[in-house]
Design a protein around this nucleic acid. Sequence first.
RNA 1: GCUGAAGUGGUGGAAUUGGUAGACACGUUGGACUUAAAAUCCAAUGAACAUUAGUUCGUGCGGGUUCAAGUCCCGCCUUCAGUACCA
Length: 1006
Amino acid sequence: MQYHFNEIEAKWQKYWADNQTFKAENNSEKPKYYVLDMFPYPSGAGLHVGHPLGYIASDIYARYKRHKGFNVLHPQGYDSFGLPAEQYAIQTGQHPALTTEENIKTYRRQLDQIGFSFDWSREVRTSDPEYYKWTQWIFIQLFESWYCKHSNRAFPISELEKVFASEGNAAVEAVCDDNVEVFSAKQWNAFSDVEKQEILLKYRLTYLAETEVNWCPALGTVLANDEIVNGVSERGGHPVIRKKMTQWSMRISAYAERLLQGLDTIDWTESLKESQRNWIGKSVGAEIEFRIQNSEFRISVFTTRPDTIFGVSFMTLAPEHELVLKITTPDQKAEVEAYIQATAKRSERDRMADVKTISGAFTGAYAEHPFTKKPIPIWIGDYVLAGYGTGAVMSVPCGDQRDYDFAKHFNIPIPNIFEGVDISEEAFSDKDNTVISNSDFLNGMNYKKATKRAIFELEQIGQGQGKTNYRLRDAVFSRQRYWGEPFPVYYVNGLPQMIDKAHLPIRLPEVEKYLPTETGEPPLGRADVWAWCTETNSVVANKKVNNTTVFPLELNTMPGWAGSSWYFFRYMDAQNNQEFASDEALKYWENVDLYIGGSEHATGHLLYSRFWVKFMKDRGFVQVEEPFKKLINQGMILGTSAFVYRLSYMFANPKEEESLGKQLLKKLDNIYISHSEFISKGDLEANKEYLKELKRKLAEIAGLSDASELENVIVVPLPIHVKVQYINASDELNIEGLKNDSEFGEDYQNAIFIGENGKIIEGENDVYKVGREVEKMSKSKYNVVNPDSICEQYGADSLRLYEMFLGPLEQAKPWNTAGITGVHGFLKKLWKLYHQGENGSFYVHSSTSLETLGESFKTLHKTIKKVEEDIEGFSFNTSVSTFMIAVNELTAQKCTSKQVLEPLLILLSPYAPHIAEELWSKLGHGESIATAPFPKFEEKYLVENTKNYPISFNGKMRFTLELPLDMSKEDIEKTVMAHEKTKDQLQGREPKKVIVVPGKIVNIVG
RNA sequence: GCUGAAGUGGUGGAAUUGGUAGACACGUUGGACUUAAAAUCCAAUGAACAUUAGUUCGUGCGGGUUCAAGUCCCGCCUUCAGUACCA
C-alpha cells in the first residue's frame, strides 16, 4: 500500500468541508481559545511559500488546542480594500470588486489545499458592504464622542453638550484642538447651531482639520512617509509635494498614555513593544516661554532638561517655524531666507538621517533668559523639525551633543553648568551623575531636584510649567482613493453631518474611471449618483443637490487600517445583521489569545487596533481593553536566487574591438560559464590559468586559429537571474528546460554553456552549476516558489512540515526546495510504519503483553513530552525532528502496537493532519481525529536505571562509561579511577581533583 | 548614531539550569537492489595530522570567570531588522 498523498489530502479536505469539522460554537462548555492570523490582502500574484508560514504555525497551535479540549476560534478573511486593486483598475478599467473577487478565489483555493482548520463560515471581507456598514458605524461613534482627561476615557458628545449648556467649557478637561476659546453657558446657549457644531468638531474623536500631507499629483493621492523613496513615490516614481488639505483625523493622541501603559499588560515580543513605545514617544519635562527682545512675540520650547536652563547659550528654531520670518533682522534676512529654501528641498527623512552635516543661520534676533534676563541669540537649524514638540529648542551645548556640535561649528559659547565635568571634548548628557553649578538657585542639586525646582521657579514667574509630551500625532483618516470605505457623511454649509445607522451601509458609487477628477478631487468626485437626500434617506443623483434637502456626500474614502482595526470582533459573530457582534459572542470570545503575523505592522495596524478597541471599550461596545493578548512575529522566508554567468567583453582600447570585428564578437555573444570559486570571488582576471584556458576555448568557438587575438580582451562574467524551477538540488541547471521556457527560452536557444569541468556542454553528462544567493522572494528575481507545485509534488503535509522544519518561526530564513525530500521521506516512513503487514498492507494490532513494549513506550512518551513542550513554546522546528527520531526508532523496533501508534497520530495531527486522519480512520475510527484528546505524558516510562557517563579529563570528553544511576558519588569515583582507560589517560599522573556530578558527568583534573 | 536580534560543518539548523558541540535533515561520496532510471535500503561525512589505536584544533574576534563556556562577564567586529536629531 503506497502513500498516495494527493488522494488522501483531497479526501480529507473534502471531509472537513462537508462535515464543518472546524466550525466553532459560540456556546460551549469548553474553555475558549481564539487563534488569529494577520489579515491577508488578496494580491493578484497569489501565495508564495513565504505567506503560509505564519498560517501553518497558527494552524498547528489551533489544532493542538482542540486536542487539548478547547473550543477554538480560528477564522480567516480578507483585508480586501487596497491600492493594488485600484491601480489595476486604473490601468485596465476593470472594477476593483471584480479583480478582488478573482484574487480571493485564488487565495481560497491555495489556502484550502494546505489543509488549514479555518472556520470559513465566519469569513469576512472588508470590502463587503455588510462588513463596512459597521466600519462606518464605528466612525460615527468616534464622531459622536469626546475624550475626558479627568476620567481618562471617552464619553458621548451629547454629555459634553449638556455640560456646555449648564456651565460652559472652562472647567472641561478634554482632549481637543489647541485653538478652543473659553465660553460660558450663557454664551453657548446663545451660539447659533452652526457655531455650536464648529466648536463641537474641535472636541470630537474624529474631526476635520487642515493637515500637511505628502501629495502625489500623478497618483492623485496622499502617501505615507515610507511610500516615498528619495522624494518620489515608491510606486511609479512620481514627484511628491507637501500640501495642506482638509481631512478627517483621528484623535489617537488622546489615548497615548493608555496605549503606552497597556503594553505592560500584553504578551508581545519586547522588540515590538519597544517600537510602539518609541512611536508613542513619551517625554516628561517642561514647556518654557522665552520673551524675544524688542518684540511682542514669545517662543515656547519643550525640554526634558529644565534643570539645565542656566546652560542655555542660544536657541534653535526649525526653519519652518512661523516666527522665523517675523523676528529675523533685516541684516540677516538674505541668509535666513536662503537657508530656509535650502532646507525645503531636503525631505524630512533626509534631514533626520544626516547627523554629520551641521548647518544653520543666525536670525539676528535675541531671546531673553527667563531668570538672568541675558540675551540669547536665536538661530535656525534643520536639525530641529517643525513637527516635533514646539519646533523650537533651548540649546544647552554643555548637556546635549547636537547642541554642542552646533555651538562648536558656529563658535557659540559653551558655558559649563556641571560640577567637576570636563566638557572640552564633548557634551555631558549623563542625567544620573549630574550636579548642577553656575546656576543660581539650582547650584549643587542633582537632576531630579533641579528639574523640580526649575519648574517651580518658572511657574512663579509665569514663564513655564511641567509638561508631558508625546510624539504620537493624530492619525489622518482620509484617502483620496476609490477602493475604500465611503464615509457616512454629507455636508450642510460645509459642516459634516452623520447619516443615521438605520440607513447604513452607504455603498461605494459607480464611477466610469478610478482616477482623481481633472479638478483634483478624489475619484468619488466622478460619481453621478453621490448626494444625500434627507427626505428619502437615500443616495441620489448629484444634480438633485439643492442644499436644503439634498446635500453633497463626502468624496474621500477611509484608509486601509479602518477595516482592519476591528475585524477580530466581527469573526465572533460574522453573520449578525443587527449589531457588529452580539454581546454574548463578545463576552464569550473576549479577545484574541494568539495573534501571528509580521512585524511590519508594529506601528500601523497594531497601534490603531489597540486605539479603536480602547475607544470601543470606553463606549461600552466591547468588554476588553486590548485586542491581542499574545502576539508572535513570524520571520520572512527569503528566496534562493540562481544565476548563470554570461560572458561580456571589455577592451582597454576601442580600436581592438574594431579590429576583432563585430562578426566575431557576435559568435562569442551568448556564452555562459559555470559557477566556480573565481566567480564567487569576482576575480576572473586574477586567475591566469583559468583565463588562459577559457580564452583558448573562446578562440575555438570563434573559429580563430589561436587565442593570441583575444589576449587583451577583458572577460567579465555577468550574473543573470534564471528561474529557480530549472535548478535541481545540486545547483545544476536544466539546460533543456531553460531553452524551452515560454518566456525566456528564445534567449538561450543558441547559447553555449561551459561546464564546471571547462568543457562545452553537449551531452547529458556534463554539468552546468549555477551560482546561488539569498535574496528577498520576489517575482523580479525569479526566485518565487509557489506552494501549488509543492503540494502537487510532495503534498500539503510535506509542505507544512517542511515550512516548520526550516528553522525557528520568528527568524528570517532562506527557502530551498531541495530539503523537502527529507520531510517527505519521513512521511513515507511513517506510512510504512503502519503498513508492516504482508505486501505492505495496513497492520496495527493491540498488544496484550505490555512488557514487550517498553522501548516503544519510552519512544512514545519521550515524544509526547518534547512535542508538547515545543508547541507551548512555539518551537515548531524541533518537534519535526522529534517526530523523525520517533519514527526512526519505532521502525527499528518494528513496532506495530496500537497502544503506541494510535497516540502518535494525535501528536502528529496538528502538523500533518491529512495523513493523521487517514491512518486514524484505518485504525477504525469513524470520526475525525481533530478533537481526539492529546495523549498524556507519563514520566514512569522514561525512568532509566543507568546513565552513560561522559568521562572527561580537564574538561575534554575521552570516553563514556555506563553506570547505575543510583550509584553514589564515591562509588562512581572509585569505579572510574579503577577503569583501565582512566589509567591510560593519566599515564601515571596523580589527579588533583575529581568532579563527579551524579547523573551528569565525571571530570578528572590533573 | 541609537535600539533590538543574530553570527555554530558544504547548507537549513539542534544543544535542558554552564556538563558528551554538530541532534534531525539536505547535500556529497561509496555500496546494495535494477537491463537502466526513479524509488528504497546500508555506510561514511566539522577540519588537520595519523589512516589501527589515536592526537590536535574547532560555535564571529580578543580577553576573563569556572573542574567544565556555544551558553556567564568585559571589550570589539560583522550581518539583519527597526528607528530618530523626541530637545
